[in-house]
């Protein structure tokens, strides 16, 4: 409990330094572009692959469980859509990205800490948390909603591919299913969630990296901790946001 409070205190103080006006907007812009590439575009591939296969599997599993002939087949499309929109494209994608992006942020900043690069920034009079962390936060906040929508689209497409190739139902039935009782608020809900999760991943991972002390062993540990902590916090916030928003 005491250590939780200490973490919270240090985290809050760090965020206080992060959210300041950048020393130079031009420098901020350059780093932001680099981070968008590092943290954003480099994650497109993994999001596409995972969403496609999960969408396909969702459709197949729903179909195998729908043995009652009274239940319409288009439910396969409907259920695939609901699962992707409500949970997969926000929460599960965030958990996966926490592993990919969270560990890379923590080890990057942690390495800079133990090789004295952060001290070098301090000496120059640069606000190191602001310079290092703010572009990462802005980059993930910009990019995660796009990844979320990409995941929804690809996942639903994956379900369609599975349905048609496995002859689970016809293409038009599937399309009817994914349009049936469509609630666009679910997309808003998903995007609100993924923005919160993006913030959690970037800040928790940066926090763990920033306060590394010791050597490369500690950098490794901090990146593991970053993934575990951000995943747990994401799951807690998932519960909270679902209660609040749905």
């Amino acid at each position: 409990m005491k250590s939780l409070l200490r973490h919270l205190g240090r985290y809050t103080m760090l965020m206080g330094q992060v959210f300041r006006k950048p020393d130079k907007w031009a420098v901020f812009g350059n780093t932001l572009v680099r981070e968008l590439q590092n943290l954003g575009t480099n994650s497109i591939g993994i999001v596409i692959i995972i969403s496609f296969f999960i969408g396909a599997v969702l459709a197949m599993q729903t179909s195998y469980n729908l043995i009652n002939p009274l239940i319409p087949r288009y439910l396969i499309g409907l259920l695939t859509r609901e699962t992707m929109l409500l949970e997969f494209s926000s929460t599960i994608v965030s958990l996966i990205l926490a592993g990919k992006i969270g560990s890379s942020i923590a080890s990057e900043i942690g390495t800079m800490r133990i090789t004295e690069q952060i001290d070098a920034l301090d000496i120059m009079g640069v606000n190191a948390p602001n310079y290092l962390i703010l572009p990462k936060i802005v980059a993930v906040l910009c990019f995660f909603p796009l990844l979320c929508m990409l995941s929804m689209t690809v996942g639903i497409f994956g379900g369609w591919v599975a349905s048609v190739t496995q002859h689970l139902l016809t293409s038009s039935e599937y399309v009817y299913g994914i349009r049936y009782a469509f609630n666009s608020y679910y997309i808003v809900y998903s995007i609100i969630k993924i923005e919160v999760f993006a913030f959690i991943i970037a800040t928790v991972a940066s926090y763990h990296g920033f306060f590394v002390a010791g050597g490369s062993l500690e950098v490794g540990r901090s990146s593991t901790r970053a993934v575990v902590h951000s995943s747990i916090i994401i799951l807690m916030f998932n519960l909270l946001l679902t209660k609040l928003l749905l």
């Binding site: 390495t111 800079m112 090789t115 004295e116 690069q117 001290d119 070098a120 301090d122 000496i123 120059m124 009079g125």
Partner: peptide, 15 residues
């Protein structure tokens, strides 16, 4: 600090 230059034991270049 802007008038200070420092050379660290491990160089501390931004990699």
């Amino acid at each position: 600090r802007r008038r200070i230059g420092m050379l660290f034991q491990g160089s501390a270049l931004f990699d």
